[in-house]
């Protein structure tokens, strides 16, 4: 019965229960269009959550990724417009690299200056956002000015259906991007040396060092990948909402961290899985979206997210304590 104790199974069970409950309150929940839009809302938060998962497994915490995402997105879109550039692959690579560079700054401060990740990332987050709004600009770039190929790319659907009244809806192909990245992250974490070193470092940094892992390499890998994923997600987001807003993603760090913790990752490091994180993201997005379906006032959303964070962390803390005992 060991599988029963696995946190992924527990989360999946809770998720099923919640889905049945929400479906009973409002059957519209099970409509394909609602499910498709739910999956769509998973993409951006999910990709960012993969990065945060990595940071949390290494025993750190990252609150700077929304700032990196918005900076990479806005700077890339600005550059594309200024240079008359179009295309998908090159801008995506640009945003990803930009995010990676920001992430390396975090790594320098965490590793070389031995500062607590929370305070480092608070600082870099403030700097990057301040620079973006103070120097680069505060104006939104809307659909007319946005690079068209990016929008076309983000509009791709895997399945396209039409309702009886003639309107069409579909499942965006971006879920495949998300799925692919998640699979890649899963494989890296399970089967590569660098992936195992993240678990080792998060479990006990000193023990990992003595076992022969290079801590500098691990820390730089963790924060660079987290930054890269944020940058990538940022640009993808602007393609999906047809808008590049330099004030976007404010407060998103809380949602993403909540999702990752909900997925069973421990803030003390050393534990966490991609599958759990994906379930956690789905749960969080579902609860937030379903509050509207269940006719709960939207002002209650933050309270709901906060309570989810508290319950999830209390449960993981309880689990960790039991294992130690």
């Amino acid at each position: 019965m060991a599988w029963f104790r696995r946190s992924e199974v527990v989360i999946a069970g809770i998720l099923m229960l919640a889905m049945i409950l929400i479906g009973l309150i409002n059957p519209a929940f099970w409509g394909l269009d609602n499910l498709f839009s739910l999956l769509r809302s998973n993409v951006i938060i999910g990709i960012m959550a993969l990065g945060v998962l990595l940071v949390m497994i290494s025993g750190g915490i990252d609150v700077s990724f929304p700032a990196f995402a918005v900076a990479a997105m806005y700077l890339t879109v600005k550059a594309m417009i200024a240079l008359g550039m179009d295309g998908v692959a090159l801008p995506m690579a640009m945003a990803t690299l930009m995010g990676m560079a920001f992430g390396c700054v975090n790594a320098v401060f965490v590793h070389n200056f031995r500062m607590i990740p929370l305070i480092v990332t608070l600082g870099t987050s403030g700097m990057v956002r301040g620079f973006l709004l103070g120097v680069v600009g505060t104006s939104m770039i809307n659909i007319n000015a946005m690079p068209q190929s990016l929008l076309e790319f983000a509009k791709t659907d895997i399945i396209s259906l039409s309702k009886p009244d003639g309107t069409t809806y579909g499942l965006t192909a971006m879920v495949l991007v998300y799925g692919g990245l998640a699979l890649l992250m899963h494989l890296v974490l399970r089967y590569t040396m660098i992936g195992r070193s993240v678990y080792a470092y998060g479990g006990d940094a000193e023990a990992a060092r003595r076992a022969g892992f290079n801590p500098a390499k691990t820390v730089f890998f963790v924060y660079a990948v987290a930054g890269a994923l944020a940058g990538f997600a940022g640009l993808l987001h602007s393609g999906m909402i047809w808008l590049a807003n330099p004030r976007d993603f404010v407060g998103l760090e809380l949602d993403v961290i909540a999702a990752v913790v909900l997925g069973g990752a421990s803030i003390f490091g050393g534990r966490g899985s991609v599958l759990g994180t994906m379930l956690g993201v789905f749960m969080l997005v579902m609860v937030k979206n379903s509050l509207i379906i269940m006719k709960v006032d939207t002002t209650w959303q933050r309270v709901a997210v906060g309570i989810i964070i508290i319950i999830a962390t209390a449960l993981t803390a309880w689990r960790d304590r039991r294992r130690q005992a």
């Binding site: 401060f109 480092v120 600082g123 403030g126 700097m127 956002r129 301040g130 620079f131 103070g134």
Partner: peptide, 16 residues
């Protein structure tokens, strides 16, 4: 916004 930038830079500078 620039003042925010300076606050953040200051924090990192102090850490360094």
């Amino acid at each position: 916004h620039l003042v925010d930038f300076i606050w953040g830079a200051f924090l990192l500078l102090v850490i360094a």
